[in-house]
């Protein structure tokens, strides 16, 4: 099984030179630590920054410079700052190449739920609905099963939807899967020590197994 850092590291391999990327809160934020040295990507923060840099040194903390998770950050050379309206023009206008975000549930046709648990948790959707409605490519970092062992890769989402037919790829602690346009989770890779059968048991939605299944390099 992969830990959250290994999930982030695996997702980082999907980045391509020249990409503008929006990273969601949680595991997606960790992807920034594993960007391959030989490529250039620019990280977009929807609160108004292109070019997120590393966390600041203790003496360089600036309250006026945060990411969408409200963490203090720095800017890389060539950064730009803008308003929230311009930020979402970039997002809705499909200028962002890749969005990486977390999810509570994903359905076999690519629907995603990640903003609300009725009666329990009401935090709001933030920028997630705008991102999933317009992203050219969406990769989800998530746990395959919940704390009770129930699958989060479902036939249909049970929680309130964030967006329809949008997720393209999923990386979990167990596996890497593509969400096929015609529906279904296509198994591509399994985590070291994890069997196809275990992935099958953890997947409520339609799992498609065929061809070579690689082991995720960690």
């Amino acid at each position: 099984m992969l830990d959250k850092h290994q999930i982030a590291k695996r997702i980082a391999r999907e980045l391509k030179d020249g990409y503008y990327v929006n990273l969601g809160i949680g595991i997606p934020t960790l992807v920034a630590n594993y960007i391959p040295q030989n490529i250039n990507v620019v990280l977009q923060s929807e609160n108004g920054l292109l070019g997120i840099g590393p966390f600041p040194a203790e003496g360089e903390v600036d309250a006026d410079l945060i990411n969408a998770g409200k963490q203090t950050i720095t800017m890389v050379d060539g950064s730009s700052l803008f308003s929230s309206a311009e930020s979402f023009a970039m997002i809705r206008g499909e200028h962002v190449d890749l969005t990486i975000l977390g999810a509570m549930e994903v359905s076999e046709n690519g629907d995603i739920a990640n903003w609300k648990i009725p009666g329990k948790m009401v935090k709001g959707m933030g920028g997630a609905m705008d991102l999933v409605a317009s992203a050219k490519n969406i990769i989800v970092a998530m746990q395959h099963v919940n704390k009770e062992g129930k699958s989060k890769l479902l036939k249909e989402c049970t929680l309130p939807i964030t967006g329809l037919h949008c997720v393209k790829k999923i990386v979990t602690e167990l596996a890497v899967l593509d969400v096929l346009p015609e529906g279904g989770f296509r198994l591509l890779e399994v985590a070291p020590g994890v069997t196809v059968e275990e992935v099958q048991n953890a997947t409520e939605g339609k799992l498609i197994v065929g061809g070579e299944i690689k082991t995720i390099e960690v």
Binding site: A85, S87, M125, A128, D130
Partner: peptide, 13 residues
């Protein structure tokens, strides 16, 4: 409370 997508909120304003 009226919760809105962040980009929708920004654009409505």
């Amino acid at each position: 409370v009226e919760l809105l997508p962040q980009g929708t909120l920004a654009e409505r304003i």
